[in-house]
């Protein structure tokens, strides 16, 4: 496996995702002789995982079973150990498209944080692109390097431990795109500009507060960035449910005539709606929004250097 290339079978040293069912999963590092405890029992790596196909069902000691999935940046985002607040796939997807990333792109990122976005960026720019990521927190920088090595993508990424606002990205005139997720992005706009290629490129800044966005936009304008655009993207997830609503008793329900009248007013061709008169309910399928959803992650400000 690798985060940038699919493999068929699970090998020693791989990172795999154990899927327990219904949004519940966790990553494991596959190693000979190691065991992993789940609520369905023990998984023995040597016999249960290594050599098996990704996507297989693995039976655990208690008779329960789990699926073993191939790692992807998206699954990693959902399961990675948090060292900071992270960016989720919804924001990541629009960032990737609006920064016009593709194989071969050179990207600068700061800060690295927990590496959620980093993995997605690396996946997109591989095999010929490169990610230069800057993290001022030494421990986090070190941890990120370790993860990239483990995930077999270290050749596609350079982690630098310095303050991007003071020292920049450590590269100049080579980037196609720059991404900033730092508390004071306006202090790094100048560095971002010099990191971008002379013929131009795209920039994105992620900030939770509108005051940060205002200062960033002003800084971008001063640096001559054009096409400055701020947007916000929200994900709505729906649960698929079969709902049955009770039909009110208007005093007619006992009369057969009126009930058939009701039936005919709801043609059975409407597949999603079926009436069960014996129980006095009508059933239908619905996509029900979750009780609680993410209402705000951050504003994304994009601009072009040309």
């Amino acid at each position: 496996m690798s985060f940038v290339e699919y493999g068929d079978t699970i090998k020693d040293g791989d990172t795999a995702i154990v899927f327990l069912g219904h949004e519940s999963m966790f990553p494991v590092k596959v190693q000979h002789g190691t065991v992993t405890q789940t609520k369905y029992g023990v998984i023995r790596h040597s016999t249960d995982l290594i050599g098996k196909k990704y996507g297989s069902k693995v039976t655990c000691s208690k008779g329960g079973w789990v699926f073993i999935l191939h790692p992807t940046p998206e699954l990693w985002t959902m399961n990675l150990p948090h060292r900071t607040q992270i960016l989720y796939s919804t924001d990541i997807s629009i960032i990737t498209m609006m920064l016009e990333l593709k194989p071969g792109s050179i990207v600068c990122e700061s800060g690295t944080g927990s590496g959620s976005l980093s993995h997605a960026l690396i996946r997109t720019v591989a095999p010929t692109g490169h990610l230069y990521t800057v993290e001022f927190h030494q421990q986090r920088a070190e941890k990120a390097r370790e993860e990239f090595r483990e995930h077999e993508v270290e050749h596609l990424v350079t982690v630098t431990n310095q303050d991007v606002c003071k020292n920049g990205f450590g590269v100049s005139n080579i980037a196609d795109a720059v991404f900033l997720d730092i508390p004071s992005p306006w202090e790094a706009i100048g560095h971002a500009k010099s990191a971008l290629k002379a013929e131009g490129g795209r920039i994105c800044s992620f900030s939770p507060c509108i005051e940060q966005v205002q200062r960033t936009c002003l800084a971008m304008e001063e640096c001559g960035f054009t096409e400055i655009n701020t947007l916000e993207i929200l994900l709505r997830v729906y649960n698929v449910r079969t709902i049955s609503l009770q039909i009110p008793d208007l005093g007619k329900a006992t009369e057969d005539n009126s009930s058939t009248g009701f039936d005919s007013s709801n043609p059975s061709s409407q597949g999603s709606l079926c009436t069960n008169l014996q129980q006095g309910t009508a059933q239908f399928k619905s996509g029900v929004p979750l009780r609680e959803m993410v209402g705000h992650t951050g504003y994304l400000t994009f601009a072009t250097k040309s």
Partner: peptide
């Protein structure tokens, strides 16, 4: 919705998710 139900019946899939995104643009001026 129908697709979701049929896939559940068929099996061979996990992590099914039905979603939609909202996009909001902002005017940012002093």
């Amino acid at each position: 919705l129908e697709c979701y139900t049929k896939l559940r019946e068929r099996g061979g899939v996990v992590n099914l998710k039905l979603s939609e995104t909202w996009l909001r643009n902002y005017q940012v001026l002093p």
